[in-house]
Design a protein around this nucleic acid. Sequence first.
DNA 1: TTTTAATTTAACCATTTGGTTAGTTTTCTG
DNA 2: CAGAAAACTAACCAAATGGTTAAATTAAAA
Lengths: 216, 216
Amino acid sequence: MQKLTKWFNFTVDMGNETEQLILEAARKQFIQKGFAATRMQEIADEANINKAMLHYYFRSKEKLYQEIIVQMLNTIVPRLSKAVEYKGTAMEKIEKVVHTYIDMLTEHPEIPFFVMSELSQKRESFIAELKKRAMYFPPIFGFIAQINQEMQAGKIRKIPPIHLFLNVLGMCVFPFMAKPIFCNIMNIPENNFDQLMQERKTVIVEFVRNALKVEE
Amino acid sequence: MQKLTKWFNFTVDMGNETEQLILEAARKQFIQKGFAATRMQEIADEANINKAMLHYYFRSKEKLYQEIIVQMLNTIVPRLSKAVEYKGTAMEKIEKVVHTYIDMLTEHPEIPFFVMSELSQKRESFIAELKKRAMYFPPIFGFIAQINQEMQAGKIRKIPPIHLFLNVLGMCVFPFMAKPIFCNIMNIPENNFDQLMQERKTVIVEFVRNALKVEE
DNA sequence: TTTTAATTTAACCATTTGGTTAGTTTTCTG
DNA sequence: CAGAAAACTAACCAAATGGTTAAATTAAAA
């Protein structure tokens, strides 16, 4: 499996097939089982390659894991961050955030588990990568400032902005964490669940809009 | 360390000191690290006993783990279930649920992580124990029915009850899952966080009350 | 006190697991 | 095509880990 492909005069790094197979298999395993419960052999089996290849391409389990984390955070964090930066009224911003979160979580429902599991185990490599992305947080403070402003102007009901923020995120993220309880324990089919989450987009936005409506 | 204590004429099982030490150490380790990442030796060290004692009292890692799960679920589930059964108006019920959840999570902040981590890894022993407690869910359907009723009667704004339920739980539970991000990543001190959660009790209840207020 | 049963310990065992190595095959390059 | 570099494989290794055992110690019963 060749790494380089001739294309016109250039030698272009198209990425390597084996490497991609490994990354995909590793992502699946790490995200579902967490670091400790994942076996290098299982990753190799899933990718249909020799176990030694894992070390050939990524040196160690830890390094491979790191790679997965970096890729995942680079996909997710900017997308969520951009939603918070969306220009408009506080309610429009909230609407954007709700839609982005629910779309993202519908595409990657395993992510909250992964993040939570690694945070709880205090895996340094994970926490370090998250800290590097602290630069993505300022938009949140901008968001909070804007809410404060609109509250002072009497456009929306007063509520400590941090609580409003936690309320919105909680309503979006929590159901995805409760999904296994719905689907496995209460035997609600998967597509019912996905549909419910789509409904939530408008339900949550309406809920927040009413909660923030000022008395006339 | 004796297991049996004479008391009047009876021989009473007071539990065993060693057994308790093991359970406490195991609980701490399993809840923080999950099943796979927990080492029997670490449990033994934490309990200051010989590793063989773990097997003497609990046969295997799996059995010990099972014991921890059962104890935890038996403590938590009925308490939460009772809150949902609380008699009163929908809003009073919601208030009770919010307070119970936040108090419980303040006492046991690790539990959501544990539950989520085990659910994500689809650990059969855990899911099985959870299923056994499905009998605790009916109160939820009663709760939903009552909300439907009050909505029909025009006492509260209309919203699909399942969404209302998810909203309330999400607002309560999510912040505890985001706690490490607050405390580790954004460097907010622990006691600040706990205070914020106490505030949330009234903030959430007010938020929901307004969201459900019918137009005059 | 003697005997019996429960509890505890250190040493040991088998398996799993991350990681290595030495050699083979494939691909690229001059 | 020849030689070199890259990709790949099977066999192997050392450490970690769940679990066992046989013997020692302590408590209970007779």
